[in-house]
Design a protein around this nucleic acid. Structure first.
Lengths: 188, 188
DNA sequence: GTCTATATCTAGATAGAC
DNA sequence: GTCTATCTAGATATAGAC
């Protein structure tokens, strides 16, 4: 055979990996198949050996994103809550605001997920529930867990939606402080 | 003249008004000019008598959205904080989650705003600052004001990104409770 | 499995008639 | 100011050569 046994799987993986970054930065619907394929050094026609449609890629991208994020955010939490605080500092950072391609999928593609197929939202729901459950244990409060997740996602959306560097920073800094005050200071 | 003096202004207003609802529901970039014009009973060609480009419409839509929302959310706040609580109940409601076309522009088009021209984000920033300032007065805490705005926007994004009605409701209810507990219960 | 070439469709935008 | 017709460009997706 002209191509190795693992070649197809490798190409598929590389495509998804690259598409994750590109579409978080530029939007999914506004990015063409040709652009995605040429980013991995191939032409548009080859795409359909890997996915039956562009929409199928969207599902694969979101599932990969969610798997990745929820493992990172829900996994390996110790009882001290220190790792959760570190998580929040990373999430609510200027770097994250300025680099959607490396960051969480929800602030970047939340709008497109809302309009996607049920399977896509099912995957998102499953991942979110994992994170919420883990954080509920750390915070000892199921409501607070959802609220903190909402704050994180919302702060990123807001911070990216404003123009000046000053306001960008103000939003994430204030949100970080407010979470600290409400959930990490005196008690617990 | 074949058309009244106010005709053009009326058409423009109707176009923006309709585009606001349609694009919050279906996304801006994924909605065509023809669809927007036929929604007000006209054909695509007439669009360019009102806007030089589709992008110019986006700016007008966002500016209108922001003007509308920030007046509603920042204006007419009395000192008791009761109106703010009513605002939050409306924002964090199942109705709002299920009807993006009538709701806040940020959860719906936040991703597209992040990729838009600086003027668009400038308008968003100005409106957000108005709301933040008003809420900071009510809450007596500038950080808390940003945090509450972030929670509201984030909760809507999350709630619309999941599949089951149960989780949708859980997210907004938990967020509402957490805000109540952190900012409206004992003190103040 | 990937390429080139292409079919098909849709989108944004323009020209000229009314 | 709005219409129809059209240009142009870009998109998704397919066919056949290698």
């Amino acid at each position: 055979m002209r191509y190795s046994k693992t070649h197809k799987a490798e190409t598929r993986t590389k495509l998804i990996e690259t598409a994750r970054a590109i579409t978080k930065k530029g939007g999914f619907s506004s990015t063409g198949v040709d652009a995605l394929m040429s980013a991995i050094g191939m032409t548009g026609g080859a795409f359909y050996s890997h996915f039956p449609s562009k929409q199928a890629l969207f599902q694969a991208v979101i599932e990969d994103e969610i798997r990745n994020s929820s493992e990172m955010l829900a996994g390996e939490q110790n009882a001290s809550g220190e790792q959760l605080e570190q998580c929040l500092r990373n999430y609510l950072s200027t770097f994250h605001v300025l680099h959607p391609e490396e960051g969480c999928v929800l602030p970047a593609l939340g709008g497109e997920i809302a309009r996607a197929e049920p399977e896509v939202r099912g995957a998102v729901e499953k991942g979110l529930r994992q994170v919420q459950k883990a954080w509920a244990n750390r915070l000892d409060d199921p409501d607070a867990a959802w609220a903190v997740i909402a704050q994180c996602v919302g702060a990123l959306v807001l911070s990216r939606a404003v123009e000046t560097e000053r306001t960008r920073k103000e939003i994430i800094t204030s949100t970080r402080k407010a979470i600290q005050k409400s959930y990490f200071s005196q008690e617990k």
